[in-house]
Amino acid sequence: MSAFEVIGSILVVINKRMVRAAFWLAMTLVTIGAIYLLFQSEFVFLIQIIVYAGAVPVLFVFGIMLTRRTIMDEPGPEGGP
């Protein structure tokens, strides 16, 4: 489970498309929930899924749509990435 979590979080960071990163963030948070389950805290696991996998990424995706989509692809106003 930790391995999935690490893979997921790496995918979050290296993805250039923001919505993909948000999706992998959701998957990472689900695996974190599974780790809570392994610690025998059922309630925290379900809350993690409801709040962090169901609600927060949706907020992120809405937020991403408010920003410039090609933020990573084209150079910024100062010429940097």
Partner: peptide, 22 residues
């Protein structure tokens, strides 16, 4: 494209309400 989707406010309140519901 970059567009002002008005549902952002609803998503924000939703997260807060989700936690409050817990």
């Amino acid at each position: 494209i970059q567009f002002h989707f008005q549902y952002y406010m609803f998503a924000l309140i939703f997260v807060i309400f989700d936690v409050a519901a817990i």
